[in-house]
Amino acid sequence: MPLNCQRELFDLPAGLTYFNTASQSPCLRTSFAAGERGLRRKLMPWIAERAALPGEMERCRELFGGLLGAPADDVAIVFSTSYGIASAAANLALAPGQDILVLEAQFPSNVYAWERLAARAGGSVRFVPRGADFDWTGPVLEALDDRVGIVALPNCHWCDGALVELEPIAAECVRRGIPLVVDATQSLGVKPLNLETVPADFVVASGYKWLLCPDMMGFMYVAPKHQNGMPLELNHASRTGAPSMETGSGLGGCLKPNARRFDMGAADSMIHTPMCVTALEQITEWSPAAIHTYLTGLVDGIADRAQERGFTCPPKGRRIGHFIGLYRDQPWPKDLTARLAARGVHVVFRNGALRISPYLFNDEADVDRLFTALDAELR
């Protein structure tokens, strides 16, 4: 069922146009209320509602896994993209002389851990340059040769939304036996991603952008073949069969036989977890496909109006549907985003692109306000 604008579910003041979800999403009103309930549990940790926390954690795993087509057993709760990527890098091997394939100007959280792994293994990180007309998929496929030991990619470039088609890349990785690690932070929850067509080894996503979750919350899918690996942290909660702390030290047992062993320490946040549940439940109810369809309509309109003004952007078919970056021949004014914010329009620069990232609280009136403000400031 097609979606309409959902602005009433968020607390955005009248006259404000927020086009910066790719940096930080506002939370849902229901998530804010859930956070207040969580704060009360912290204020009064003796109340009975604290006992709901383990069930909330499992609900988060179910919901995140559902976005990928994975069971809850395959999902770990992590702090951030960088934490998840570091976990993946700690559990993948690189033969001497092999390369790790990443995009040129890829987001740093999906680069630094690979540089460290490559340095330790005597290999290197190979940065794939963008092809003509904003093509990433072709150059990545061309770069997949016998020297590649790991592929670590997003499914769109974080600066301008240029698309990376993971389906053919994943198929080639499977054919060559190369592990694939996906940073889905800029897409999961707003564009469908299915493990049947993208059989990744690890999928990591921070929650504070398109998943509408609070800061310091993220999730990681771990393929079953890696679930006997070593987590970054060792603690009581990551173990099974350990003695109770009520009657002893709690020492003993062994690591859990699934992705839960990779949970960050203190994954059982009384405040953040219920906020994640409400956010992921709402996204599941809307469905990523329906969200993407709605936002694609807005982004296509932004692209058309940008091109009328002589700006450049990834073309239709080479961009993801839910955000876009605009370029122009001469440099953008350095204070442009501040001047637009003074007009109530919030966007951001990323690597030379004016990045515009709408969500379901935006509509065509916001697109009008954006270009009215741009025209006034660039006149």
Rank of each mutant, 00 (worst) to 15 (best):
residue 2 P to R: 06
residue 5 C to T: 10
residue 6 Q to C: 09
residue 7 R to D: 02
residue 7 R to I: 03
residue 7 R to N: 03
residue 16 L to D: 05
residue 16 L to G: 03
residue 20 N to H: 02
residue 21 T to R: 07
residue 23 S to D: 06
residue 25 S to C: 00
residue 25 S to M: 00
residue 31 S to D: 01
residue 38 G to W: 00
residue 39 L to C: 06
residue 41 R to D: 00
residue 44 M to F: 12
residue 46 W to M: 07
residue 47 I to L: 12
residue 49 E to K: 08
residue 53 L to N: 13
residue 59 R to L: 08
residue 62 E to A: 14
residue 63 L to I: 12
residue 66 G to K: 09
residue 67 L to V: 12
residue 68 L to D: 01
residue 68 L to V: 04
residue 70 A to Q: 07
residue 71 P to R: 08
residue 71 P to S: 06
residue 73 D to G: 14
residue 74 D to S: 15
residue 76 A to R: 05
residue 76 A to N: 04
residue 78 V to I: 13
residue 85 I to R: 03
residue 87 S to F: 02
residue 89 A to S: 13
residue 92 L to R: 06
residue 95 A to R: 14
residue 96 P to L: 06
residue 98 Q to N: 13
residue 101 L to E: 12
residue 105 A to W: 12
residue 107 F to S: 12
residue 108 P to Q: 05
residue 109 S to C: 11
residue 117 L to S: 12
residue 119 A to P: 15
residue 120 R to C: 15
residue 120 R to A: 15
residue 122 G to V: 12
residue 130 R to V: 14
residue 131 G to A: 06
residue 133 D to A: 12
residue 140 V to N: 09
residue 142 E to C: 11
residue 142 E to Q: 15
residue 143 A to H: 12
residue 146 D to A: 15
residue 151 V to G: 09
residue 151 V to N: 10
residue 155 N to A: 01
residue 156 C to E: 07
residue 160 D to Q: 10
residue 162 A to W: 00
residue 163 L to K: 08
residue 167 E to C: 04
residue 168 P to G: 04
residue 169 I to C: 05
residue 172 E to C: 10
residue 173 C to W: 06
residue 179 P to N: 06
residue 180 L to V: 12
residue 182 V to N: 08
residue 187 S to G: 14
residue 189 G to D: 06
residue 189 G to N: 11
residue 189 G to M: 04
residue 192 P to V: 07
residue 198 V to S: 01
residue 199 P to F: 01
residue 206 S to Y: 00
residue 206 S to Q: 03
residue 210 W to Y: 15
residue 213 C to V: 00
residue 219 F to W: 04
residue 226 H to S: 05
residue 226 H to T: 07
residue 227 Q to H: 08
residue 237 A to T: 04
residue 238 S to E: 07
residue 242 A to G: 09
residue 243 P to D: 01
residue 248 G to I: 14
residue 249 S to V: 10
residue 254 C to N: 08
residue 256 K to W: 03
residue 260 R to W: 08
residue 262 F to I: 10
residue 263 D to M: 03
residue 264 M to E: 08
residue 268 D to V: 06
residue 270 M to N: 07
residue 274 P to N: 07
residue 274 P to V: 05
residue 275 M to C: 08
residue 280 L to W: 00
residue 289 A to Y: 00
residue 289 A to T: 07
residue 290 A to Y: 01
residue 294 Y to C: 02
residue 303 A to K: 07
residue 307 Q to W: 02
residue 310 G to N: 07
residue 313 C to P: 14
residue 317 G to P: 14
residue 318 R to W: 01
residue 320 I to V: 12
residue 321 G to T: 03
residue 331 P to K: 11
residue 334 K to D: 11
residue 336 L to F: 05
residue 337 T to N: 05
residue 337 T to G: 04
residue 339 R to Y: 04
residue 340 L to M: 15
residue 341 A to P: 13
residue 343 R to P: 10
residue 344 G to M: 02
residue 344 G to W: 03
residue 346 H to F: 13
residue 347 V to M: 07
residue 351 N to K: 14
residue 353 A to D: 06
residue 354 L to Q: 09
residue 356 I to S: 11
residue 366 D to N: 11
residue 369 R to L: 10
residue 378 L to V: 09
residue 379 R to F: 03
